[in-house]
Design a protein around this nucleic acid. Structure first.
Length: 851
RNA sequence: GGGCAGUUAGCUCAGCGGGAGAGCGCCCGCCUCACACGCGGGAGGUCACUGGUUCAAUCCCAGUACUGCCCACCA
C-alpha cells in the first residue's frame, strides 16, 4: 500500500474526466426535460482557427456559466460549432493550391469547392478538440457548421425574405474594393493606417482661357475619371466661377465648377477635383449634383478603357507616374509636397482599399435596427460592462447599408438568378432555360447573424427552437459588437420575434506581458494549449479568470501558477479530510464545536457571495473568492482547528464537498478528482451534483467568536516572531478579558504553541487585542529591559496617535451632527478602547521600570 | 476631429465616500504527522497632477498631463 501522491496530475486526469462527461449525456440539453433552460450560443470560431488566449478566456467564462447553471438545476445547452469563414478558409486553400502551382480559376468553381470541403473534413475544426482540452462542456452532439444543409437553407430563406420585404436591393454603389481579395468588403473590414503620400497640385484651365483652378490630390491617376471641380459655396475667391467650366488636362473633358458644402476652403487651394467613381466623398457629391460617374480603375485593379489610351491596363501606381510625367510635359503641375494621412486598408488581405463603383447586393438596416435599438435602450438586452451598450447604440443609431455580397466562391451563394434583364430571387432555381445564378456569396457575418436560431432548426418549429430560443447569455469580444452582436439582435427580432439573449458579456482582451497585442505575426502570442500542458487546464482556467476584469489586462503567468497551486491545495486538503474520516453525500451535520460553527458560517457567506458574483458576471472576483476561501478559511484555519479538536470529520467532509461543488465550474477536473476520493461520493461525479447550497442559517456569534480566536492566535504568533522566539519555543500566556468570551484555550495553545497560566509573571508583557489583553512571558529568559521599554513606547506612541485622530473627529461638531450614527458610535468605541490600551501600556511601563 | 477606458506597493492588478488590499517578488523564521506548488511573521504606497463638492475623498465633479482602444468623408 502506498499513500496517494501529494500532487494532482492533470495530464493523467483531464482526458479521463472529459471522456466521462462526454459519455454522461449531460452536455446535451434536453428540450423535453421540463427544467428551465439555460442557453449560451458560443461565438462560433472559424473552422480554420486554433485556440488562442482570447478563446481560452472567453470559453472558460462560458463554461463557468454553463456548469454553474447546470449544477443549479437548469437544462443547460451550450451551442457548439464552427463558421465557414469565407475569406479566411478560401485563403488557406488557395495558398495550399498555390504551393502546388494551381490557381483556383484554372480548376474552376466546382473543383475548387471540392478541395475546400476536403480540407475542411480533414483539417478543419481542430479548435473543437482544443475546446475539450480546456474542459468546455459544449453540446458536442449538436455541433453545427454554417454551411450545413439546414443552416444554408435558413440563410437562403432569410435573404429571400429580406428581399421580399424590400430591405435587400442591388445597386451600383461605392464599395471598399479589396484588390488582394478581388472582392468587396464591408466598412467594418477596413482599417485606417497612416501613410505618407505625395500631395500633387494640378492646374485645371478654365474653358474660356481666362485662367486656371489649381486642385490638390494624393491620387493624381484618378483625375482621368474626374467629372467636376467643387468649391465651397462660402468661398468668395471662387464665387464668380461657379457654373463655369474647366478643361480636364490630359483628357480634354469639360468639367463644371460646382459648389458643395463638403469642400473645406481652408484646405489646399480650396478647390476639389471630383472623382465620383473612386472616392466616397466625391461619390456623395456626385449623387447630390447628378454628375457622371466614370470608372477608371476596374475590379481587376487596373486602369480601365475609360482611363484612355496610354493609361488603360496600367496599375494605378504605374498610371500615377505616367500622369505626373505627362502633366509635367503639359505644364499642368503646380506643386508637389509630402503629405501624411490616413488611408483605408483591408483587414483581410492587408492591401490598400480601392474605393470603386461596383454592382453589389446591399441590405438597408434602418428598419431592422429600430427594434434592436429599443431592446438595448429598455434593457431587455443588457451589456456587461454597461458602457458597451452605448457603443452599440451609437453605431446602431447611425447604421449604414450593409454590402452583403462578396466576390468569393466559398460561402452561401446568393439565391438570385438572372436571365437577361430578368431577376429571380428564391432558394430554388426558376423554371425555364437560360437562368444563371449570381456567382457571388454572402458576407460570412450574414450567416453568423442567424447563429442563435439557425442552430435550433429554424425555420422549422422544432422542440429545440421552442425551448432553446431565446438564449440567455452571449459572451464575446468587443471587436465584434457591430459585426456580430448587433446583427444577431436584429435578425433574431426580425425572424423569431424575440431577442436572441438577454445579457451580453464583453470579455476583456488579454495583452502580451509587455502590453502589446497578442498576435502571431508580432510573435507576442502565448499558446493556451502549451499552458495547459505545463500547468493543467484547471490552472489555466483559474488564472485567466483571475486576470480578467472589466478592463484589458496584461497576461501574467503567475496567475496561472496560482491556479495550479490552488489545485494542489485542494488535492491535499482532500487527502487530509479523507484521512480524518470525512465523507460525501451526508446530510448537513449540526455544528457544535467552535471550529465547525465558524466554518459553517464562513461557507454560508462564501456561497452567498459566489452566487452574487456569478449573477454579476464578475469572474475575477469569483476566482479570488475561491482562492481565499480554500487557502485561508478552509485550509489555514478550519483544517488546523480540525487537527486540534475544534472540528469534526462530519462537518469537514460536508464542507469540503460543498466547496468542491462551488469550485467545480471554475476548476472542473481537480474538483471531480477530489470529490471522487471522498467515500460516499455520487458515482456520476460532480457534473450532476447540485451546486453548493449552504444549509445553515446565519450565525453571527460563530463568526464573531471565530474572529476573536483568529485574532488571538495571530497576535501570539506575531509576538513570538517579532521577538525572535522560535515558533515551537515556549511562551506562557494569561488572558485578561475586556469582553466576555470563552476563548477555546486548548485550541489556541496548540495553534500558537503557548502554555496557559492562571497568574501572569511579574515581568509579563501585554498584547492588546479586541477582546482584552494577553499577558505573555517567556520562562527562563532574561529580558532586555531597555529594548522592551522601547517597544512599549513605540506602541504607546502609535496608540496615542490613533486616539488623537479619533478625538479630532469627535471634536468636530459637524461630524457628530452629519455623519451616520453608527459611524459616530464606532469612533467613540475606538476612542474608549484606545484609552484602555494606553492605560494598559502605561501599567506595563511601570512594571518594567521604564523611564 | 469626436467618444470610451486607464494612471493605487518593485511587477501584474483589485478596491471606489468614513482608519490603503491580493498574488508574485523581497526580508525573517519554520521540512508542525494534507500540502515546501507548503506554514507563520514582516518590510514596502503624499492611491498621476490641479482645483471643487462634502463633516469626511484614492473613491464624486471639473480641468491638466501622459497611456491604450473605438468611431469619423477633409482632397
Amino acid at each position: 500500500m502506498s499513500a496517494p501522491p501529494n500532487r494532482f496530475d492533470p495530464a493523467e486526469a483531464e482526458p479521463r474526466w472529459m471522456a466521462r462527461w462526454l459519455e454522461s449525456g449531460a452536455l446535451r440539453g434536453d428540450p423535453a426535460s421540463g427544467r428551465e433552460p439555460y442557453v449560451i450560443a458560443i461565438p462560433l470560431p472559424n473552422v480554420t482557427g486554433s485556440l488562442h488566449m482570447g478563446h481560452a478566456l472567453n470559453n472558460t467564462m462560458q463554461d463557468v456559466l454553463i456548469r454553474w447553471h447546470r449544477m443549479a438545476g437548469r437544462e443547460a445547452e451550450w451551442v457548439c460549432g464552427t463558421d465557414h469563414a469565407g475569406i479566411a478558409t478560401q485563403a488557406v486553400v488557395e495558398k495550399m493550391l498555390a504551393a502546388q502551382g494551381i490557381n483556383r480559376r484554372e480548376i474552376g468553381r466546382e473543383a475548387f469547392l471540392e478541395r475546400v470541403w476536403a480540407w475542411k473534413e480533414q483539417s478543419g475544426g481542430e479548435i473543437i478538440n482544443q475546446q475539450k482540452r480546456l474542459g468546455c462542456t459544449l453540446d458536442y452532439s449538436r455541433e453545427r457548421f454554417t454551411l450545413d444543409e439546414g443552416y444554408a437553407d435558413a440563410v437562403g430563406r432569410v435573404f429571400v425574405s429580406l428581399y421580399q420585404k424590400g430591405y435587400i436591393y442591388r445597386d451600383r454603389y461605392m464599395v471598399n474594393w479589396d484588390p488582394g481579395l478581388g472582392s468587396a468588403v464591408s466598412d467594418l473590414e477596413v482599417e485606417d493606417r497612416e501613410v505618407t503620400d505625395s500631395l500633387v497640385s494640378i492646374a485645371y484651365p478654365l474653358s474660356d482661357g481666362s485662367g486656371e483652378i489649381v486642385v490638390a490630390t494624393v491620387r493624381p491617376e484618378t483625375m482621368l475619371g474626374d467629372t467636376a471641380v467643387a468649391v465651397s459655396p462660402a468661398d468668395e475667391r471662387y464665387a464668380h466661377l461657379i457654373g463655369r467650366t474647366v478643361i480636364l488636362p490630359l483628357v480634354g473633358r469639360e468639367l463644371p465648377i460646382i459648389a458643395d458644402e463638403h469642400v473645406d476652403p481652408a484646405f489646399g487651394t480650396g478647390a476639389l477635383k471630383v472623382t465620383p467613381a473612386h472616392d466616397p466623398n466625391d461619390f456623395e457629391i456626385a449623387r447630390r449634383h447628378g454628375l457622371d460617374e466614370i470608372s477608371v480603375v476596374g475590379e481587376d485593379g487596373r486602369m480601365t478603357a475609360l482611363a484612355g489610351d496610354g493609361y488603360a491596363g496600367l496599375t494605378p501606381l504605374e498610371c500615377r507616374v505616367k500622369v505626373i510625367a505627362d502633366l509635367r510635359v503639359a505644364d499642368g503641375l503646380r506643386g508637389e509636397e509630402e503629405y501624411t494621412h490616413n488611408v483605408p486598408f483591408s483587414h483581410r488581405s492587408g492591401e490598400r482599399i480601392e474605393p470603386l463603383l461596383s454592382l453589389q447586393w446591399f441590405c438597408d438596416m434602418t428598419k431592422l435596427a429600430e427594434p434592436a435599438i429599443a431592446a438595448v435602450k429598455d434593457r431587455r438586452v443588457r451589456f456587461t460592462p454597461e458602457r458597451f451598450g452605448r457603443v452599440y447604440l451609437d453605431w446602431m443609431e447611425n447604421i449604414r447599408p450593409w454590402c452583403v455580397s462578396r466576390q468569393l466562391w466559398w460561402g452561401h451563394q446568393i439565391p438570385v438568378w438572372y436571365r437577361g434583364q430578368e431577376i429571380h430571387v428564391d432558394i430554388e432555381a426558376p423554371q425555364g432555360d437560360g437562368w444563371e445564378r449570381d456567382p457571388d456569396v454572402l458576407d460570412t457575418w450574414f450567416s453568423s447573424a442567424l447563429w442563435p436560431f439557425a442552430t435550433q432548426g429554424w425555420p422549422d418549429d422544432t422542440p429545440e427552437l421552442e425551448r432553446f430560443y431565446p438564449g440567455h447569455v452571449l459572451v464575446t469580444g468587443r471587436d465584434i459588437i457591430f459585426l456580430w452582436v448587433a446583427r444577431m439582435v436584429m435578425m433574431g427580432i426580425e425572424f423569431c420575434d424575440d431577442i436572441p439573449f438577454s445579457d451580453v458579456v464583453i470579455n476583456p482582451i488579454i495583452q502580451a506581458p509587455d502590453g502589446r497585442r497578442m498576435s502571431k505575426s508580432l510573435g507576442t502570442g502565448i499558446d493556451p494549449l502549451e499552458l495547459i500542458d505545463a500547468h493543467g487546464a484547471d490552472a489555466v482556467r483559474f488564472g485567466l479568470l483571475l486576470m480578467a476584469s472589466t478592463q484589458d489586462v496584461r497576461f501574467n503567468e503567475q496567475r496561472i501558477q496560482q491556479g495550479r497551486q490552488l489545485a494542489t491545495k485542494l488535492w491535499n486538503a482532500t487527502r487530509l479530510v479523507v484521512d480524518r474520516g470525512g465523507r460525501a453525500g451526508e446530510a448537513a451535520p449540526e455544528p457544535d464545536l467552535l471550529g465547525d460553527r465558524w466554518i459553517a458560517e464562513y461557507l454560508r457567506q462564501t456561497v452567498a457571495e459566489a452566487r452574487h458574483l456569478v449573477a454579476e458576471y464578475d469572474f475575477s472576483a469569483l476566482a479570488d473568492l475561491l482562492y481565499r476561501t480554500i487557502f485561508d478559511g478552509f485550509c489555514d484555519w478550519y483544517l488546523e482547528l480540525l487537527k486540534v479538536g475544534e472540528g469534526t470529520p462530519e462537518v469537514a467532509g460536508f464542507v469540503l464537498e460543498q466547496l468542491l461543488a462551488l469550485a467545480n465550474p471554475v476548476m472542473p477536473f481537480v474538483t471531480e478528482e477530489c470529490y471522487a476520493q471522498l467515500p460516499g461520493a455520487n458515482a456520476d461525479g460532480l457534473l450532476r451534483h447540485p451546486l453548493a447550497v449552504a444549509p445553515w442559517s446565519q450565525d453571527e456569534r460563530a463568526r464573531q467568536h471565530g474572529k476573536h480566536l483568529i485574532e488571538t492566535v495571530t497576535a501570539l504568533r506575531a509576538y513570538k516572531s517579532e521577538n525572535g522566539i522560535k515558533p515551537r519555543d515556549p511562551l506562557t500566556v494569561t488572558f485578561d478579558a475586556r469582553v466576555p468570551f470563552d476563548l477555546p484555550q486548548t485550541a489556541v495553545a496548540a495553534l500558537a504553541h503557548v502554555t496557559w497560566t492562571e497568574t501572569p509573571a511579574d515581568d509579563a508583557r501585554s498584547i492588546g487585542i479586541e477582546l482584552g489583553r494577553l499577558l505573555v512571558s517567556r520562562p527562563d529568559v532574561i529580558i532586555d529591559i531597555a529594548a522592551e521599554c522601547g517597544r512599549v513606547d513605540a506602541q504607546l506612541a502609535a496608540t496615542r496617535a490613533e486616539l488623537a485622530r479619533a478625538e479630532r473627529q469627535l471634536a468636530n461638531p459637524n461630524f457628530i451632527e452629519r455623519a451616520p450614527d453608527h459611524l459616530v458610535q464606532a469612533e467613540r468605541d475606538k476612542a474608549t478602547r484606545f484609552v484602555a490600551e494606553i492605560a494598559e501600556l502605561g501599567a506595563e511601563r511601570s512594571r518594567l521600570g521604564c523611564h
